[in-house]
Deep mutational scan, measured.
Amino acid sequence: VLKALERTRQLDIPDEKTMPVLMKLLEEAGGNWSYIKLDNYTALVDAIYSVED
């Protein structure tokens, strides 16, 4: 979780936006981090930006 938060902080995305999206992605992935961690957490960042749209 810390590495995911560090990555999104680099992009000026607050933890308050990151955590709900991260928890949803983890739930959808059955707790499997490998998809979320791919390409420096690209799936997480993309999911956060899609929620903002």
Rank of each mutant, 00 (worst) to 15 (best):
D15M: 04
A43Y: 10
E52Y: 14
R7V: 12
D53C: 15
S34L: 11
T18G: 02
V21L: 07
D12I: 05
T8R: 03
D53H: 14
G31P: 03
Y35V: 13
M19C: 13
K24E: 04
A43G: 07
E27L: 11
S50K: 14
Y49K: 12
E28H: 09
L44I: 04
L44T: 02
K3N: 12
S34A: 14
M19P: 01
G31H: 09
E6P: 00
K37A: 15
G30E: 11
L22F: 01
N40V: 05
P20M: 13
I36R: 00
K17A: 09
Y49L: 14
D15E: 03
L11S: 04
E16Y: 13
T18R: 02
I48N: 01
D39C: 08
M19K: 05
A43R: 12
V21P: 01
A4L: 04
T8H: 03
L11Y: 06
Y41V: 01
K3M: 11
S34I: 08
R9Y: 04
Y41E: 00
K24P: 00
S50C: 09
K17T: 11
I36A: 02
L11F: 08
I36P: 01
A29D: 06
V45S: 01
I48T: 02
A4E: 05
T8Q: 02
K3A: 15
K3F: 04
A29K: 09
W33L: 03
K24C: 07
S34G: 12
V51F: 12
M19L: 14
Q10E: 13
V45I: 15
K37R: 13
D39M: 08
R9F: 04
Y35F: 11
L26M: 05
P20N: 08
L44N: 01
V1L: 14
I48K: 01
L26Q: 02
T18H: 03
W33F: 06
M23F: 10
P20F: 12
N32V: 08
L11T: 02
S50L: 13
R7E: 04
Y49G: 08
V1G: 04
P14E: 07
M19V: 09
Q10R: 08
K3P: 05
I13S: 03
T18P: 01
T18L: 04
A47R: 09
E16G: 08
L25C: 04
A43D: 02
D15K: 02
Y35K: 12
P20T: 10
L38T: 09
K37W: 12
L22I: 06
S34C: 10
E16K: 08
